[in-house]
Amino acid sequence: MFTQLKEKIIAESKKLGIDKIGFASADSFEALKDSLVEQKKSGHTSGFEHPVIDERIYPDKIFDQPRSIIAIALAYPTRLPQPPQKIRGEKRGRFARASWGIDYHDILNERMARLIDFIKRESPETDGLTFKPMVDTGELIDVAVAQRAGLGFIGKNGLLITEEFGSYVYLGEIITNIPFEPDTPITSQCGSCTKCIDLCPTSCLLGDGRMNAQRCLSYQTQTKGMMPKEFRPKIRTIIYGCDICQEVCPYNKGKNFHFHREMTPEPDVVFPLLKPLLTISNKEFKQTYGHLAGSWRGKKPIQRNAIIALANARDTTAVPQLLKLIEDDPRPVIRGTAVWAVGELTRSANQHLLDFLIDRQSKETAEEVLQELTEVIAKLTE
């Protein structure tokens, strides 16, 4: 009875702008439990995941009588339609590709809502149908659902890799009590390739599709405290996310799809000028960047990352602004990061700069800022 409905859903999904769709059983993901427990015990989780492991692997703990899971994927672009405007003497940062265009959570939720409406209209049994859509902030593990539904395989970088679009896809899923015939899962096709593991600058990939999320640069750009010194040079001028393990993957070579208008990146927004970010107001930040997935943590992490990016770009013209942040900004993370950046950008200290830093040291109360001041002053007086 539901075979015909499944065929209708697949046909309709193409009309709705869903690039791949698959159907999985709602059986438990019990095989993942030991790994998830081990990851949490080892401190390899980011803290952004759903906190209850059992709810991540047992669909019946979050949904009444689940029978199937519908998995969808939308391909996103990897290249800008045109480069950002070049401005003499100004350095730009960069948002990773998954934050180009409108926040993918909004796009996927809109597609899934329309798909659910269609299923309700077309189902031969309209009474008692239930659905629970989710994107990566939900309980289930997106890549595990998508792999079981036959959308692709899970690579050694932990991402879902599709035949058509590589790993440049957004994923969503809908739990339902409709008993659809499941599709065939796809096993790993990575073979002996280890490019993502070998070229990860922080060695965060564990080799089996898992990672130490605490070492992932994408995670580090989303934290709100002081970024550990080890990671600061490694983010280069990326102010949100990281694409390295995708860029080096052979399955992603030549992949660039502009299927969805909402995902069209604005070059000057996703490659923003760095210095203006240091003084941007909350209102301006929301107006300019609020529609991006990369804005979800607010402006402070982006500003902190912009300071680091200016240091990595060797932009000495930013030093006056950095000194002003050290003196006036009320946030210790910003003051401390600015102190570090000044130390990176100053090859030889003049007495005026040293006097300024020593004066700030005498007035500073935040431990993280005092530590940066102590180290930079020592460096400049050697």
Rank of each mutant, 00 (worst) to 15 (best):
C193T: 12
T162K: 03
M226G: 02
E247Q: 14
E247I: 12
N256Y: 09
M227S: 04
I244R: 14
I161C: 02
G225L: 11
P182I: 03
G155M: 02
C204E: 02
G207V: 08
T202R: 04
L159T: 03
C245W: 11
S188M: 08
Q189C: 12
R148W: 10
R210K: 15
M226R: 09
Q246D: 13
I174S: 04
K156Q: 07
G209Y: 03
K253W: 15
H258S: 15
S218R: 04
G209H: 03
C200S: 01
P250Y: 02
R215C: 05
T162A: 07
K234N: 08
R148V: 13
Q222M: 14
G150Y: 00
I239K: 02
G209L: 04
F231H: 12
D208C: 07
T237M: 10
Y168C: 00
Y240K: 09
Q222I: 09
G150P: 01
C245Q: 09
T187K: 11
F231Y: 15
C242G: 07
K195F: 05
Q246I: 13
T237V: 12
Y240E: 12
C204M: 04
L160T: 03
D183I: 01
I186D: 00
T221P: 02
T202I: 07
M227G: 03
I154G: 05
T162F: 01
E173Y: 10
L199H: 11
Y251T: 00
G158H: 06
E230A: 13
E164P: 11
K156A: 07
T187D: 11
Y240I: 07
Q246G: 14
I161L: 05
R210I: 06
E247S: 15
I244H: 13
Y240L: 09
P182K: 03
R236Q: 14
C190M: 01
G166N: 01
G172Q: 05
I239W: 02
G191Y: 05
C190E: 00
V169N: 13
R215P: 02
I174K: 04
I244S: 10
S188V: 11
K234V: 06
C190W: 00
R215V: 07
P185K: 11
R210A: 15
Y170N: 04
G158F: 07
E181D: 08
F153P: 10
R215N: 12
C200Y: 00
C193N: 11
C200R: 00
Q189N: 10
P250C: 09
P228F: 08
R236V: 13
K195Q: 12
A149Q: 07
T176Y: 11
M226K: 06
L217K: 02
C249M: 08
D208M: 08
A213E: 04
L217G: 02
G155L: 02
N256S: 14
I175A: 06
I238C: 08
C204K: 01
M211N: 13
M211Q: 12
S167H: 01
F231A: 13
R232G: 13
T187S: 11
G209R: 03
R148N: 14
I238R: 12
E230S: 13
